[in-house]
Design a protein around this nucleic acid. Structure first.
Lengths: 126, 126
DNA sequence: CAGTATCCCCAAGGATACTG
DNA sequence: CAGTATCCTTGGGGATACTG
């Protein structure tokens, strides 16, 4: 199996979901949807992200035109990341998905509990 | 870092996106949204999925109440998988995301091309 | 047919160190 | 501050074989 990046780019839904799929892209975009932010500030607020993954994630998002990167000519250097219009429109759709999650989470949890209960009793029977 | 399954279950959006994130869940649900289907039929149509991952994926989706599993008392045994109402409502939201992808894919591609071009000329300069 | 069990590999990503 | 380079580990997932 080839690495994820090399496949499925003919399928538009996978193209976007591969990006959403990795834990960090979404969290970073969600954070940037609250306003522009610099590298280390993001690092602190995204909680748990490694320096490497933040850099990689930002490169990906920037390449896809979802965020912008602006270097401020200062010393020490400062770089501001911000959501683009394109990124903002994506986040809007993602929020619809989050709304679904919030709305239906009780049902999902209930389903899981029911499944696990059935599972446990089936195992006991064996 | 603990494995993905053990964390972020307090965050509803991650809970659903972790599921969407793995390549197969979505493809399987999308296929089932076209009608009920049996194991090996799914295997053939989902293209590229291994027997193991199909089984694992189906278990997950079933546990979350997104699909149903019905064993038909026949010989040889037959098992029909189908999208539940819950699963259907999720797919509806996912389709909104797909619509975004279809609609904005040109912009994303254009952004990538621009980025890569800048990247290449920057590299040549060095 | 519809799975489970086992083995095994590899690339995603963390930790650490260094640079403009 | 904002990264890049390097090394190393781990668990996701493929291949294969077996079962009710």
């Amino acid at each position: 199996m080839p690495p994820r990046d090399q496949i499925n780019h003919q399928c538009p839904i996978r193209d976007v979901l591969d990006r959403m799929g990795d834990a960090w892209s979404l969290l970073v975009m969600l954070e940037l949807s609250r306003g522009p932010c610099r590298f280390n500030a993001l690092r602190r607020v995204v909680d748990g992200i490694s320096q490497r993954m933040l850099a990689v994630t930002l490169r990906h998002l920037e390449r896809d035109g979802l965020i912008s990167r602006q270097v401020l000519p200062l010393s020490p250097p400062q770089v501001e990341y911000a959501l683009t219009g394109l990124g903002g429109s994506l986040i809007a759709r993602v929020n619809l998905l989050r709304d679904w999650a919030v709305e239906h989470q009780p049902q999902v949890w209930q389903a899981r509990a029911a499944y696990d209960a059935r599972d446990a009793s089936a195992e006991k029977a064996a």
